[in-house]
Design a protein around this nucleic acid. Structure first.
Lengths: 247, 247
DNA sequence: GACCTTTGTGTCAAAAATACACTTTGCGAA
DNA sequence: TTCGCAAAGTGTATTTTTGACACAAAGGTC
């Protein structure tokens, strides 16, 4: 303590959410399009805002996400804290902050979160002061506001790691899905090609998918079989077999 | 924004560090022993303190760690943000805060960090207002101040995950070490028994260890061969072969 | 019915994981 | 000096997992 007192920080805290969606073809991220203050241009940002006093971080992330996009009750996983003192200092960002924040010069430390949702289940609701919340294919996302690009990259990295360690990603698909769709999802997230036969073998051996009687209809090729995710078996598996990797 | 303004949070930020050490036998954590304000008792906390204005988070974590323990220039990895509004509300914690903080009622959100250091290389230096920084074997750590137990558990979990994915942990050992010591280290971190022969085979196959001519001396059994870690080969390996797990 | 597109399937070889027990070395005690 | 103790060090056989690879089946379109 002692002589440090007057240096102590008095910052704001925000939560920013990286929401991944999958349209059965490419991976998308839910972004807010903001009007730049000067005029015609828009620029993109993650849905995020300051958190309230006495509000737990996870709760805040969910509230903020809901306010900006309409999404509700999403399981959000933390990416980490981003607190570079210069993270709000790009001119465009400063202009926006001045227009919208009570104390635009305050340092803001943000907690990044990420989650996966099915794009089908959900059509974004533009909120009051966001121009629009929209799904953007991940390869088309360039620069973002603040350090949001860094947060996005961090989230994607965590998502990849998680995917290689345990089968997640079912949230990204509709309830009934085909193995090809799941295959494409894995390729989209990991950004690599995966051998079709080996992928299927491995997936099925895990014994967490249930094949349905149903098949695709009206497609101009051999119809694909539908599967669904068996949550029960998945949780059984998590408890037994997933701790022992490596050794 | 709008009507939310008056709810906006005005918290403090702190950094707390989980420093793991290994005494060639058991895993230890570097803890601060604080006097309780009432009197004779001590209680334990992670080294941590408030961060300064305009100070990057990582820098702050290193500074705080240095001030409390004397450790310098440690690579700290983030565990995450911990921000439960009640995290400072245990009576003991409140007493301590009142004694030592300018604004003891302010909400404090903390960023947890962890790192590995060699216990041999380092003998903790007690700092001014910490009673003592000491290594405590991880099995002997019970309750800690605030939510530090939660932070510690989170750090240990991350450490385990990382260890299974890539060979770290060399920072925890002296420069020259034996395979048995490395073996014990892995067992201590993962908390499981690992087959000796299989462990050695796997470790050596990675080709990141260099066997030295030297052997143990003065031990009442067959002397063990010393190895050292080849940082060059390790970094080569990281670039090529470590991304492709799982698929 | 010819053609296009995507699904779905099997095998073989190489690599990795697992389980498992005895000999070696050096010290200390009798 | 030898006997015992404690930890180091070493190899094999079996099973499991990975990775590479090609062609027939189904259904729609023209």
């Amino acid at each position: 303590m002692h002589d440090k007192m007057n240096h102590e920080l008095n910052p704001r805290i925000s939560a920013d959410c990286v929401i991944f969606g999958f349209d059965l073809n490419t991976l998308n991220v839910l972004l807010i399009e903001r009007e730049t203050v000067v005029g015609l241009d828009t620029y993109k940002a993650l849905p995020g805002d300051l958190i309230f006093e006495d509000e737990p971080l996870d709760t805040a992330a969910n509230r903020v996400l809901n306010e900006l996009t309409g999404l509700e009750d999403i399981y959000l996983e933390q990416v980490g804290a981003f607190g570079d003192p210069d993270r709000l200092s790009k001119p465009q960002d400063r202009a926006w902050l001045k227009a919208v924040r009570q104390d635009p010069d305050a340092r803001v430390i943000t907690i990044g979160y990420y989650s996966l949702v099915g794009m089908n289940n959900y059509v974004p609701q533009p909120a009051s002061f966001a121009r629009a919340a929209t799904w953007i294919p991940i390869e088309e996302i360039g620069e973002l506001a603040f350090d949001h690009r860094e947060i996005l990259d961090g989230a994607l990295k965590k998502l990849k790691e998680k995917l290689t360690v345990q089968p997640i990603g079912f949230n990204l698909l509709p309830e009934k899905f085909t193995l090809s769709q799941l295959h494409r999802l894995y390729e989209a997230i990991l950004g690599v090609e995966l051998d079709k036969r080996n992928f299927r073998r491995k997936m099925l051996k895990m014994d967490i998918l249930e094949s349905l009687e149903e098949r695709q209809e009206g497609v101009p090729h051999k119809p694909s079989q539908f599967y669904k995710f068996n949550e029960q078996k998945y949780h059984d598996l998590l408890k037994t077999g997933f701790d022992n990797f490596g050794f």
